[in-house]
Amino acid sequence: MTKRENNLIRNPVFPPRRGTFRAWGRSGQTKLTLLPWLIPALFLSAWIAASETGLIPTYLLPHPLEVGRAGYNYIFGKVGDASFAGRFLGDASASLIRVGTGFGVAVIFGIPLGILSGRLSVVQRLMGTTVNALRAVPGISWLPLALVWFGIGMKTTVFLVALAAFFPIYLNAAAGARQINPLLLQAGAMMGVKRLRGTFAILLPGSMPHMMTGLRLGLGIAWAYLVLGELTGVPNGLGAVIMDARMLGRIDIIVVGIIIIAIMGRLGDQLLTISLRFCFKSARRTS
């Protein structure tokens, strides 16, 4: 037997089996379109099973069908048919406007300040301590103060959302600007790039992967603080619905509210990623 054959027997080479699970890392070819639905499906089946067998009493968690009916009514029902019927459009748009405004304010402050403090040590020295101190304060402790300052409603919610979303956006933009390869900036300088073009043609695209992470984290947190801001007694909004439902003992509507927020949060994240990729080459090609 030759050495090679011997080796082949000890370490046989198998052809890659088809249909094996290759989801680790980024697999371009394998289609795993159903995989993301696995955990929700398991969750739902467990819920159904628990409800059918009576393991969980309905006053703690209603049957999925009941929740589905409540959800259908909430979204498609006519206003006045039942409590909560048809409120969805008004609530969702009110919440979206609050999240959008708060997130927008956070972006307007977070990105420029972050980039500046990533590049200029003066700004970093100036902002670093304050930002890290404020970051440690839980959002909920701002709530009483915000209520005193802005009253109940839009302003308080937007304030909380903007404050919470600011930190991840700022910190990631700063990290992105800090980690840029200085040789890229030198190369730019030698190709005649002045400060303004350097910012938009090198600094921002170079920080894009980090900035994108910050924006996505910020948007996620924005949803969390939206509900917090709306729990305080505003008339409309998804958080307000959950609060109203609790008062009225409508567990089904609470669950509906939670599911809708989850879905909108997920869609928002996807929309953010897609629109960033659509607008910026650097988002398309480097992250």
Partner: peptide
Amino acid sequence: DPGTDRCVVFQEDTLFPW
């Protein structure tokens, strides 16, 4: 200052990845 009249080819990869 650096300028386009004196250009450099670096040892490292300094192309813009995007």
